[in-house]
Simulated scan of single mutants.
Amino acid sequence: MNIVQTAREVGKSPAAVTLGLVALSFVFSDAAYAGGGGAEFDDVWATLREWTEGTLGRIVAGTMILVGIIGGIARQSLMAFALGVAGGMGLYNTPTIIETIMSATLEKAATVTPAVMQLSNGLGG
């Protein structure tokens, strides 16, 4: 069987045609960017951030650590204490982590793009 016969056989398959159309739609699609909307939830985010990093967050984090200490004593294991400390630290730092992930930017993208293009296809530009 040669290449032409194989191409004809694959062309008869509905799955292969669908896959080819999906691939073409990716090739000819424009760049997509995340939306900048959602300003109506800024107050909710500010409230949650104040709760977790304010007095309430410190109380909850301290309680988690205290429960971890008590659990560690009851089980005679340091693991419960470590989980309590990690949970308290995670709770306090969650807003910072979320904002860092969601607002990540590529500051050096303009200088790196030509090198990446050179590496991606080997031809360069």
Score class of each variant (00 low, 15 high):
G36T: 13
K12W: 00
M1S: 12
G125N: 09
M89P: 00
A82V: 14
A61H: 02
G62F: 08
L48V: 08
A16H: 12
G38F: 04
V17S: 06
V85P: 02
V17F: 05
G36N: 13
W45E: 14
A34H: 07
L19N: 11
E9T: 03
S120K: 07
D43G: 13
G54S: 09
R75C: 11
I3L: 10
V67A: 13
S13W: 03
A110D: 11
A115N: 13
G88E: 01
A110L: 12
M89Y: 04
N121T: 08
I3Q: 03
K12E: 06
I73K: 09
I59H: 07
G125D: 12
G54C: 07
T55S: 10
A7I: 14
R49Q: 13
N121D: 14
K12N: 02
V44G: 01
G88H: 02
D42C: 00
G37P: 06
M1E: 15
N93T: 01
E40N: 07
T63N: 05
V85G: 01
T18L: 15
A86Y: 10
L123S: 09
G35F: 06
L19Y: 06
G125P: 15
T111Y: 07
L106I: 09
M79C: 02
L21E: 05
G11S: 05
L21M: 00
E99A: 08
E40Y: 13
R58L: 12
I101D: 00
T113S: 12
